[in-house]
């Protein structure tokens, strides 16, 4: 079996429709994730007239994200040699993550149905999985487990609050349970980053740079941040639990403000 499996060949049935990164970036109305667009936005809550519909679209994005997270963690178990490339304990963590992500896929399908969304109703973009194709396991872990799973913390917490305000116990509890897993996944990223770069400052710097690149990709239009207009709210407390320093969280908040300023003019 080949190492580093290309995103184009990920297995999907006929219900799924793929949107290329090129198409996403070339959309002159502004790239979007989960129903957010190039317009000035506001925090995603049920009180917005289109809040439920935006949450519904975002849920589909979460669902395909879970599939790709499963695929990414699975590849990390396989793509690297035990002991020479990565320690066995790290593969064990990735195997545990696969188990979690598989469960998240099932939960997300059920939640999407609960919100009136069909599988494949929205286009799928494979940006998440592509971050999991990095040939360096340390960069892969920072890009996926710290940047993208960090984003998952923010998304799940926002959705959990959405469910709580709407009085929707199904959404609230499901998101809470998944959130707990994501905090663990991010912590795995933080722990292995520290462990694997203990005596390699250059590799650490490179990994943190890669994390920033991925974080920036998902901060466009101020999609995620800690101001009122950010649809997805940055979640300081859970990020701290997952091994983020205050300075790192400040950086992400700042990155988002800069991205939002670029489009608001």
């Amino acid at each position: 079996m080949r190492k580093i499996f290309p995103a184009e060949e990920l297995a999907r049935d006929s219900r799924f429709v793929r949107q290329s990164n090129e198409d996403r970036i070339n959309d002159p109305r502004g790239a979007r994730v989960g129903g957010s667009t190039g317009e000035k936005l506001s925090k995603l809550t049920p009180n917005l007239p289109n809040g439920p519909d935006r949450a519904r679209a975002l849920m589909h994005g979460i669902f395909v994200g879970e599939i790709q997270a499963l695929e990414g963690a699975g590849r990390t178990c396989y793509d690297f040699e035990t002991n020479t490339d990565v320690p066995f304990a790290m593969k064990l963590d990735m195997a545990r993550q696969c188990w979690d992500e598989a469960r998240h896929c099932e939960i997300s399908v059920a939640l999407a149905e609960h919100m009136g969304t069909e599988i494949g109703e929205f286009a799928e973009n494979t940006l998440l999985y592509q971050a999991a194709c990095n040939p360096d396991p340390v960069l892969r872990l920072t890009g996926v487990n710290r940047a993208l799973e960090g984003l998952a913390i923010d998304v799940f917490n926002t959705m959990k609050e959405f469910g709580s305000i709407a009085g929707d116990p199904v959404l609230e509890f499901c998101e809470d349970w998944m959130l707990a897993d994501e905090v663990t996944h991010v912590k795995m990223g933080s722990d292995w980053l520290r462990e694997l770069t203990l005596n390699d400052k250059e590799r650490l710097t490179k990994a943190l740079e890669f994390q920033k690149v991925v974080d920036r990709l998902f901060s466009f239009n101020g999609f995620r941040g800690e101001d009122d207009e950010n649809p997805i709210q940055l979640t300081r407390r859970f990020r701290e639990l997952a091994g983020f320093s205050d300075e790192e969280i400040d950086d992400i908040a700042q990155m988002s403000r800069e991205a939002a300023a670029e489009i608001v003019h």
Binding site: P52, R56, E113, M115, G116, T117, A166, G167, D168, V170
Partner: peptide, 16 residues
């Protein structure tokens, strides 16, 4: 179409 989508919107405004 999308009866479930409409139901979700309705529940958000009228309770689950």
């Amino acid at each position: 179409t999308q009866m479930k989508r409409r139901q979700y919107q309705f529940r958000n405004r009228h309770g689950f």
